[in-house]
Write a protein that binds this DNA or RNA. Structure first.
Lengths: 196, 196
DNA sequence: AGCGTAAGTTTACATTGGTAATATGGTGCG
DNA sequence: CGCACCATATTACCAATGTAAACTTACGCT
């Protein structure tokens, strides 16, 4: 029952579980959410369309696994840009830019990982991955509050406000609904919307 | 070519166009986004599943029409709660509560009207309906700026910030992703997140 | 009255996700 | 070493869906 550690194609496929997630992400990046079909992903991984059932139960399960991976990458994107020793407000800006940058660079993954229509939001793995992203935001918030630069004193309030703001911005930007009437100047960048 | 003014079932149906939109909203409120199938909506309106094509071209066209109606109701929900003669900050709170209230009360409509997967965001009707909602927010923003209570001086910046914040809050609240770790106290209300 | 055409229906079809039955091949036990 | 077992994967099949084409109906205009 021990998994083959790497790409060696022992057993029937090797580790189809990871291969399917990878194939799914490729489909997603290539043709968007609509391309996330059981048959399409399975074909890309070189297996029949019923193979995923053994590992994920259903399409929904597979999409949830993909979304979980998306949350991991999302957290990494934020942490990647986060200076460790810097003023809290610089860290906030970096986090916000990391957040929005991920959503902009990976529109498909970002849509998927927030869609209750595709994912099982109550899956434990999914939940803890999403939580890991939230923790980045909570850390930065704690810094802001400690130095008295937060707009509210209650951490929960600041967290919720920042989370809403940055998610709303990313979501609207992706829908193209940002910036009011078209042609009325450039869309403000996220860094200029943070109440510091 | 004159439309029958009311429910009289002249012609083949009367006005199937409105009937389909109404039926679609009913399906949506009853069983969520997944119930928005061509066949389901058509059956509810009492016609065959290919009838909608004459009026909307495709399922996407029908859903876009439903989403357009959703935006109209959304704007109405905000304006309904908006006091005409009141301090700008009271008007802001009322608008935000109207926004979030609509999303909470009509989760299906709210999901639909922001989903590029279901709707054609570039449809002129859709766009002008969404714009009408944005105008409510822009009006309130103008008041805030006039009285010097806005966090920024550029209206576009304030509009984008508020739009992002209120949409992000509504969207996350609906996904159940709001409030950080579960069981750590109540979720802050939108009125307490507005930087005034 | 009669014709043109918008409005709906019926039929057919490709694609999708899911289930059941079957084949395949690695693992471990004798 | 051989054989049974079971996870893994495939094939065949099904119901549901959106779309296209051919056909039917009945309004409106001349």
């Amino acid at each position: 029952m021990n998994l083959p550690s790497s790409g060696q194609k022992s057993y029937h496929h090797g580790d189809l579980k990871n291969a399917l997630v990878t194939a799914g992400i490729a489909c997603l990046e290539q043709d968007g959410l609509a391309a996330l079909t059981l048959r399409g992903i399975a074909a890309r991984a070189g297996v029949s369309h019923t193979a995923p059932k053994n590992h994920f139960g259903s399409l929904r399960g597979l999409l949830t696994a993909i979304a979980t991976e998306a949350w991991h990458r999302h957290a990494a994107a934020m942490r990647g840009q986060l200076p460790t020793d810097a003023p809290p407000r610089d860290r906030l800006v970096a986090m916000a830019e990391g957040y929005v940058g991920f959503a902009t660079t990976n529109p498909g993954l970002y849509q998927l990982m927030l869609s209750p229509l595709h994912c099982d939001l109550t899956s434990p793995d999914f939940h803890s991955a999403a939580r890991a992203s939230y923790d980045v935001l909570a850390e930065v918030t704690a810094d802001l509050i400690r130095t008295g630069q937060a707009p509210f004193s209650d951490p929960r309030q600041v967290e919720t406000m920042l989370w809403s703001l940055v998610h709303g911005y990313a979501s609207l930007a992706q829908s193209g609904m940002l910036g009011g009437p078209p042609g009325t100047g450039p869309v403000p960048v996220i860094a200029d919307l943070l109440p510091l």
